[in-house]
Design a protein around this nucleic acid. Structure first.
Lengths: 112, 112
DNA sequence: GATGACGCCTCGGAACACGAGGTATGTAGC
DNA sequence: GCTACATACCTCGTGTTCCGAGGCGTCATC
């Protein structure tokens, strides 16, 4: 019963989309950036990330493109599409509605 | 790809535990109360709730007891245990850490 | 030439949600 | 008394998902 992991699940997609609005990134980079920015509150794993990238690309929310980095490595850079930006907006609203509803319950003062 | 449902998952357990600190409740009641209090932002279903009640009872976080309501119906009232209260505190902390991390990303101003 | 970081990926076991179904009792209307 | 619906409990099967473990190739460091 891993509570934390369960909580994280639903946030993967909006967070991914949001980060890709800032700049195009490749998978490995997304993992590093998220773990840094959240101080490991969200611990993204490759086994979760890559399938999602493929799914979102199949759905047309992001588009990937191979490119050669300065260090000579091949990387697949993803950038968000117009459709993805719309989906992001929707899911941010959902997140706000959900998290404030949950906060209203969880952070209410306990009865004596 | 139901984004909202995914988000909700991780919040079920802490919300359940929190509500049971307010007063003992039975399953059917929990569903009604949650849907009311969150204006259907969290839409709890029986198929999700009952298995969780049994799981949490098996783990000793809550304890259920049959009782007869004023209207003559048999209801199973659950109340939180000491162990459950400790688990609640932990998972509330996790929720706060997670939701503020996600908010920091999602609500950041977009680049132009 | 070996080790480890980088960078992509897939597979399979385990866990989970929830629609659909079941049972039983109370109330309301006729 | 009968029917229909809300209450109240529950389970099962299908479909979905996570993620640890593993594989593959490249580059830098020693």
């Amino acid at each position: 019963m891993e509570l934390t992991q369960e909580m994280i699940k639903g946030t993967v997609v909006p967070v991914m989309l949001k980060l890709l609005t800032e700049r195009a990134m490749y998978g490995y980079e997304l993992i590093r950036v998220v773990n840094e920015r959240t101080h490991n509150a969200l611990q993204w794993k490759e086994g979760t990330l890559y399938p999602w990238l493929h799914r979102l690309e199949a759905d047309g929310l992001i588009r990937g493109e191979w490119d050669e980095a300065a260090n000579g490595r091949q990387r697949k850079y993803y950038r968000i599409t117009r459709k993805g930006a719309a989906a992001l907006e929707t899911s941010v609203h959902e997140w706000v509605a959900l998290s404030s509803a949950v906060n209203a319950i969880l952070l209410a003062p306990s009865m004596a």
